[in-house]
Design a protein around this nucleic acid. Sequence first.
DNA 1: GTAGTGGCTTGACCTGGATCAATTGTATTT
DNA 2: AAATACAATTGATCCAGGTCAAGCCACTAC
Lengths: 193, 193
Amino acid sequence: MFEVLFSHLLEKILLTEEEKEIIKIFFIPKKLRKRQYLLQAGDVCKYLCFVGKGLLRSYNVDDKGEEHMNMFAWEGWWTSDMYSFFTGEKAIINIDALEDTELLMITQQAFEEMTLKVPKMDRYFRILFQNSLFTKERRLISSNTHTAEEKYINLVESNPALVKRVPQNLIASYLGLAPETLSRIKKNIAQRK
Amino acid sequence: MFEVLFSHLLEKILLTEEEKEIIKIFFIPKKLRKRQYLLQAGDVCKYLCFVGKGLLRSYNVDDKGEEHMNMFAWEGWWTSDMYSFFTGEKAIINIDALEDTELLMITQQAFEEMTLKVPKMDRYFRILFQNSLFTKERRLISSNTHTAEEKYINLVESNPALVKRVPQNLIASYLGLAPETLSRIKKNIAQRK
DNA sequence: GTAGTGGCTTGACCTGGATCAATTGTATTT
DNA sequence: AAATACAATTGATCCAGGTCAAGCCACTAC
């Protein structure tokens, strides 16, 4: 489990064996079965989670009971309701497992302590957040600028693995589309070839 | 100028006088007149900029020549094309001044050096990026979940100062709406009262 | 096997918001 | 103060994508 974590940390920072040992202490391993919840809206999000294996989805539910996908996380990704995790407010998103999943979880206090004991972790997360930030920036631009079909094509090009691994109705929701619309888009694209 | 910067840094981290002096060295002050560009799409974004005074907008232009607002930055905010700044790729966004503006700018190399000399700055930017990340997360959720009117009402409630300070057509664009649509929404809201 | 459950497709219809065009403010410039 | 240019409103029309409904195709469970 920890090998996966460290291989990701080492892409961005250098760590001594000693530091690795310190870091290990703060994490709690956990396994989730397919369909099992990691977080339910209304609860406080207690953990920031690193996915070692498997696939999670996070989504929120609106007043009408509709689900809206907001991100996926698999091997090497972090997930949580960031807002809830860092502020202690109630979460507005749900996270559950699309596949059997293995996690490393860390609490807010442990996170604080870890960054103080190993300041390099501030650097790691600075780079990590900075990267997600510009990904989100681009995604937001794309969602305002492009048509439904363009968004789908962009996604297939920028992240083909995701499209293969995740059910189509969730991809549709992730793109802000009705499942019927995505189905029609795929048909159109196929026919044009 | 630097007082504004330090007052913002000190909200998140503690700095010695010595560290402050080091940090100062890396920044370049700059003034912009209203309508002047800070960054044009196609150029590489050389600077990460802290706004000490004034107001900037960042937006991108699509294939059809339409402008799409993506964020505003005023006193105490940072702005840049994050992706371009950190990767050295060409920028896809434009940034220009909506009001006369005073900035503190830092290059990529200077940024790297600064974080190595003052590791607390990694912490500062970790927290900063983490906060923007969950703001963007919420905004993305909102943009997929809500109707045009709900988005506008949310914005007015969450950021009334922005709505007062920025021309209405830019607010419309920021929300992904046609200016006519926002005008009608405001009319509807006013009539219902 | 077959019953059930949930994802995917297809068709018919509807609607929120975009687009186009004209009119009226309201700043800025000379 | 007139001229110019841009911002906001209003009306009329249009369309991308949503909604509703029906049928189909896996899979899993018994």
